Amino acid sequence: MTTASTSAPFPSRRSFPFVTWIRSRQLARWYDRHLQRLDLAEIDDHLLRDLGLAPEDVRRECAKSFWQA
């Protein structure tokens, strides 16, 4: 007769809230990045020069997908 293993094959259920928290943080980070790129796209060339950014740099940044850093 074999006995059941003491270690579970899957993570404990207690880890689920942590995983959910990590995923919600990632989604919030992606959404924030998306909003920042929308704001950056609206800045005029004069203010971009004041910030030390070239319009081409802004176009390149705004062309990235929301998950790309």
Score class of each variant (00 low, 15 high):
A4S: 09
Q36A: 10
D45S: 03
L53V: 00
I22S: 11
L48K: 02
K64A: 01
D45F: 05
E56M: 02
S12M: 05
F18E: 12
P55S: 00
S65P: 14
L47N: 10
P11I: 05
R29V: 01
I43L: 10
L48R: 04
L40H: 01
L35K: 06
T3Y: 15
R14E: 13
D39I: 04
T20A: 13
T2G: 12
P9L: 08
R29T: 00
H46D: 06
T6V: 11
E56F: 04
P11Y: 13
D45M: 05
W67L: 02
C62I: 01
D50Y: 09
R23A: 06
A69R: 15
S5V: 13
R23Q: 09
R23T: 01
L35V: 03
R29D: 06
S5R: 12
P55A: 00
E42W: 15
T2C: 12
D32E: 12
F16W: 14
L47S: 08
D57R: 05
K64T: 01
R37L: 09
S65I: 04
A4Q: 11
Q36K: 10
F10E: 06
W21V: 00
H34N: 05
R29C: 03
S5T: 10
Y31L: 11
R25Y: 10
P55L: 02
P11E: 12
G52H: 06
R23F: 13
G52M: 05
F16Y: 14
S5Y: 14
L51E: 05
S12I: 03
I22F: 15
V58Y: 06
I43Y: 06
R60W: 06
D39K: 08
R23V: 04
T6W: 15
E61S: 00
T20N: 10
L40K: 00
T20D: 12
E42N: 08
A69T: 06
